[in-house]
Design a protein around this nucleic acid. Structure first.
Lengths: 210, 210
DNA sequence: TAGATTGTTAATCGATTAACAATC
DNA sequence: TAGATTGTTAATCGATTAACAATC
């Protein structure tokens, strides 16, 4: 049932949350089953694309009937790992780091944003939702005790590489970097560089092209 | 010189900020010129890809010599619109909205994050960097007076569509939506849906696949 | 001239779309 | 059975890579 999991290409993987979210917006009793044509129409995608994508992670549609709603949701959640609890820490407790620490929606995909860490002792403490901010020297012990898998970097530009090195040293497997510095890293750790400013620049440039 | 601007495909456009950032990390006097091979090596890309990308926006390299550093930076900044001042507002002055309002890096690409707007009167006021938060009823007048081109939506899930409609009505041309709701919109406004939680889920799923 | 580097043309690769056979 | 819908095979499209000619 899961054997073909590692064949899902990235382009497909990125559409899975979109399918899942769309299904969740439908009232469950109104549709025990749903067709690829319906999903495609609701999302403005091709129906063959929807079928091919779903075949990769679910593969249990029935001709004339469509897909079982619940089965689809289950498999999508499974493929996205929503049912696993994945522990995450934040390095850098500035405004963005704190925003992530308070952001509820991560739980929907199984993430527990456990705590934030910062060099600045004045930033330590506790947010209104109970999430804590520690000094950075507590990071390693915390990651090891709590089996932290993912680190989010929200430090200023100059500190990003050392934050990355530190997280790798703490054993995290993936890093999501919001500092403008592009990180260099060992190949067994997955790094995604997310540059907010340049993303907006791309959006803005697409606008002018039109 | 600009006539082929509208032919830059999205895949290329997304690499332009990466080239620009890489060039800026080099000390300018150390390289008056730079070759595609050097850029490719520095970024882990193919050198033909670099040449093709650069040809689309600069197109002025010289055999045996390479590209003029300054010319490259100029054309990249031009293609990305860094030299234009583009006015941006934020709708939703929660933690994420405030984080964007204080984030410096947008200026590097010519953006002026002018102000934020919120339904909640208690959130109005001024941040330490002088940026102001107004009530939402001030939005339309502000956008028209200041010629606001882009809106960033950082409201809770249920309010995103009405925030979008409002921004469209205020005349913005592009919307960057951080609410989990996927927005429906008129075709003459460019909308980018950015779902932080699902992006992290994709990163996490890629990790398991490996 | 010879060598380094660009820019272009052709080949490859992967993703999307179209056509259609299978099936409930 | 007939019609609706899935899943697969082939065709198309776009992006990347390879080969190579042009040129300073």
């Amino acid at each position: 049932m899961r054997m073909n999991k590692n064949k899902v290409p990235k382009s497909v993987l990125e559409r899975l949350p979109i399918y899942l979210h769309y299904l969740k917006t439908l009232s469950a009793d109104e549709c025990k089953t749903i067709s690829s044509a319906n999903i495609a129409r609701g999302l403005g995608l091709g129906e063959v694309q929807v079928r091919k994508d779903l075949a990769l992670v679910c593969g249990t549609g029935k001709p004339k009937i469509g897909y079982s709603y619940q089965n689809l949701v289950d498999h999508l959640e499974d493929a996205l790992g929503c049912k696993m609890k994945i522990n995450v820490v934040i390095v850098g407790a500035g405004k963005l780091g704190k925003a992530f620490l308070s952001y509820d929606c991560f739980t929907e995909y199984g993430f527990d944003i456990m705590a934030a860490f910062d060099i600045d002792e004045e930033r330590t403490g506790e947010l209104s939702n109970g999430k804590k901010i520690f000094t950075i020297d507590k990071l390693k012990e915390f990651c090891q005790n709590e089996n932290v898998k993912i680190g989010i970097i929200t430090v200023p530009e100059g500190s990003a590489q050392s934050a990355c090195d530190l997280l790798v040293n703490c054993g995290v497997k993936a890093i999501w970097n919001f500092s403008p510095t592009r990180l260099v890293h060992t190949s067994d750790v997955k790094v995604k560089n997310e540059n907010m400013a340049s993303s907006l620049a791309v959006l803005s440039a697409e606008l002018r092209v039109k």
